[in-house]
Design a protein around this nucleic acid. Structure first.
Lengths: 248, 248
DNA sequence: CGCCTAAAAATTGTTTACAATATAGTTTTC
DNA sequence: GAAAACTATATTGTAAACAATTTTTAGGCG
């Protein structure tokens, strides 16, 4: 307990805290977490690679406290594994985990699409088209980091239309868990092109208020990544005991 | 300093890193986060109350580093709000947030129940009955902390039957976000009793493999808590602009 | 009397140093 | 010569001190 000050809750009449909406900087540690995430996404850091606090502190020109924080955050996100007194390493996902995550993702994303209020405002459609153009441009130029982020923005805007903040947040959370495995599908140019065309079709369905078509597109859009990852995994480690779908 | 000679338990001559799946202790910081969570759940800490690092360090007999970590974790969970350079405080949820969270919870929990493989093994049913008895006993004795945890265990076991680890984890995550508001419903003894009876009915439905009934129970079981919270909230702050359901 | 300004206190954010623990390498012993 | 014990090194975990920021308090001025 504090020795002198116990003025925990100050009931100030004329000072609404709501005004303190200072959306400050993302707290340094979050930035570092993001950068490490990026490295994992792009395959610059591969599973089982160790993440040493001091190295990262030097690299990001900060102190170990923030790096530590970032590593704990990434652990909770499921992107790295941390063993007490031993350190952190990039975590590899098993095919089973990937299947389970994608099964839940599919349910949530379909749910989001199901509750989007139709018709969608023209301004929202235009916004999606703009994001789609950015995505296509990044693909054309082969800028993988941009492909990654523009794709993220497109889906963020799409699911954002559903209006339920908690649902959006949860969808993002699950997407983050499998950031790392996208590089497997994105290695093939035809996968990128298919994603691009899917986005176009989604916009078309949105504009025509064809919900069933949009749902089907959403489901189809999620298939290639886990499949590519699992194929690569089984080719690398053997395909023993890989059957069993978690959701019917 | 190395006075211990037999402590060295390195039974690994080479370097089989794969075997190092030692699930160690919950890392101190996680424990602190849990304790604070508990305080919030039981109403011992109320919204807008400040959480000061040094105070908590003294209270939990540890250093600020761990407390800091815990506060960041709780922030990400949505239980506390942190403003840079100003500190952390217990976060109060708006009715809208509560509605949105419960809407997604309902979808996820129904999903889990929908994919439970039927029939359920007798041993699983017995396990649920045992947990139900613990819950009932805790209610009878008025041990609120025990009520909380035994309820948690019951639902954990129930949804655990669905077999999808990611889904279970996500359900837990959303449940955690609204831990704090349960105290509103649990203040009424009749709410506790109704929860108890719901659990009994769920077990009955499980045993009889009546899925539709189980789904309906799951949905009904989620209703009282947010309703009680929102009533209390509107009574306290006025009910301006509270309409609008996030999910149809 | 209220409001603005400036010192003081309280709190968070950062840096550094140190201790505990695990890993790797070397020596000893049978 | 191989396995166990020891030493050395690397890395994480903890503690304390320092700096930066914010909040409170007090005082002066209109």
């Amino acid at each position: 307990m504090a020795a002198k000050s116990l003025k925990q809750v100050k009931a100030r009449p004329a000072k609404p805290r709501e005004a303190a909406t200072t959306s400050r900087e993302p707290a340094a540690a979050a930035l570092i977490a993001k950068r490490i995430e990026e490295d994992i996404v792009l395959g610059r850091r591969h599973p089982r690679e160790r993440l040493i606090e001091q190295d990262l502190s030097d690299l990001f020109r900060t102190h170990r406290g923030d790096v530590r924080l970032a590593l704990f955050e990434l652990e909770k996100k499921g992107l790295v594994e941390r063993i007490p007194n031993r350190g952190a390493m990039v975590r590899g996902l098993t095919p089973l985990e990937v299947r389970e995550i994608y099964a839940v993702r599919e349910e949530l994303e379909v749910l989001a699409v199901r509750i989007i209020p139709f018709p969608v405002a023209a301004s929202d459609i235009e916004k999606l088209e703009e994001l789609q153009r950015q995505h296509a441009a990044a693909i054309a130029k082969g800028e993988m980091l941009n492909v990654f982020y523009s794709n993220l923005r497109f889906h963020g805007a799409l699911f954002g239309l559903c209006g339920n903040a908690c649902l959006i947040e949860t969808i993002d959370l699950l997407a983050q868990k499998v950031y790392g495995i996208r590089s497997y599908a994105n290695a093939f140019p035809e996968s990128l092109d298919r994603a691009r065309r899917d986005h176009l079709d989604m916009i078309k369905a949105l504009r025509a208020s064809r919900r069933d078509e949009l749902i089907e597109l959403t489901q189809r859009h999620l298939k290639p990544s886990p499949e590519a990852y699992i194929r690569a995994y089984e080719q690398r480690f053997g395909s023993a005991g890989a059957g069993g779908l978690p959701l019917p």
